[in-house]
Computed example of a mutant assay.
Amino acid sequence: MTPIEKLLLENKAWAEEVKSDDPAYFERLAHLQTPQFLWIGCSDSRVPADRITGTQPGEIFVHRNIANLVIHTDVNLLSVLDFAVNHLKVNHVIVCGHYGCGGVKAAMTNHDFKYVLNMWLRNIKDVYRLYNDELEAIPDMDKRADRLAELNVKEQLLHLAKTSIIQRAWKYDRRPHLHGWIYGLKDGLIKNVFEMEPGAGLDPLYRYDDL
């Protein structure tokens, strides 16, 4: 049996188990998507949003990329954000990083990861540059990487607040709340590291005055 065949077989077993417990589950799910949360997380396979939050399908809208970045030219992320905020009307947007993040650790090196990854990881290097003095004062490289992961989450939340999507929702709907979290691979616990309430302070340079 190939790995793909095994996945399909496991899917059938899972679907049958769910239907045996709740015969109307899939019919009900097919007509309902009212999540309260948008999750912007890392693509790392060890950080599944629904598993670590105990949420069910339909309860959390998910976007994932390497090192949970919010980049102002990323049309994929912005389309997810637009849909979640303006159509699903989510009340909370969560950026969740994790300790031991491979993307964060890679960005701390001077290794050439070739064209596309180099461009992506440069966004994390920019975060490092902003907090260079604080990070360089941490001698333990693992602890330094963990702190960079926290600071990276903070900066991505600020990037969200700079979008017209979030600012417009803040102005007219007083939502969503923005949450910056870090997940611990070693203990399975989530730590809240940064938050922004609707209308939170932002450098005036990034504020739109004609929304």
Results as ranks from 00 to 15, higher is better:
G54D: 09
N76C: 02
D210H: 11
S45N: 09
I124Y: 01
K89V: 03
A106H: 06
F83R: 00
E134P: 03
P35E: 05
V153T: 05
A67P: 01
K89Y: 05
H159C: 08
N91I: 08
D44A: 13
I60Y: 09
G54N: 05
H63F: 14
M1E: 15
G58T: 06
N91T: 15
V18Y: 05
L9V: 11
E150R: 01
Y131M: 00
Y208T: 14
A106F: 11
A145Y: 03
E155F: 07
G180F: 06
E136M: 15
F83K: 00
V116K: 10
V75W: 13
E155S: 02
K186C: 05
F37Y: 12
E155H: 02
I165G: 01
H63T: 04
M108S: 04
I52Q: 09
K143L: 11
A137C: 05
W181G: 03
E59F: 00
R147F: 11
L148V: 06
F113N: 02
T2M: 12
V153M: 14
I138M: 05
E195F: 09
A67V: 02
H111W: 08
G100V: 07
I60N: 08
S79A: 07
L211M: 15
N152C: 01
V18I: 15
H72Q: 15
K6M: 06
I40V: 15
N110R: 10
V62A: 10
S79Y: 08
D210S: 15
A13M: 09
A67N: 03
E136F: 01
F83P: 01
H111A: 11
N76T: 10
K186I: 14
R129E: 11
W120G: 04
H63N: 10
L185Q: 12
K162N: 03
Y183N: 00
D126F: 11
K12M: 12
H92A: 06
H179V: 00
L130W: 05
V47W: 01
M119W: 07
E155A: 12
R28K: 14
I60T: 04
E10F: 00
S79V: 02
M141G: 10
I138F: 00
S79Q: 08
D82C: 01
G54Y: 04
S45Q: 10
S43M: 09
P176M: 06
I60C: 04
S79P: 11
A169G: 05
D44Y: 04
A107N: 09
P176I: 03
E155W: 04
G102T: 13
F61E: 02
L160R: 04
A49K: 03
I66N: 01
L160F: 06
N11Q: 13
I165V: 14
L205W: 08
S20T: 09
V85R: 05
D140G: 07
E59H: 10
K143N: 15
N118C: 07
R46F: 14
A200I: 02
A200Q: 01
D209C: 02
K105F: 09
I4K: 08
I182Y: 08
L202Q: 13
G184D: 13
A15P: 06
N86Q: 15
K105R: 14
V75A: 14
P3C: 12
D22G: 04
A30E: 15
V153Y: 05
R168W: 00
E155V: 04
Q156V: 00
N132C: 15
H31V: 12
L202N: 06
I190C: 11
T163G: 03
P204A: 04
K89T: 05
N11V: 08
D209L: 12
G188F: 15
D22K: 02
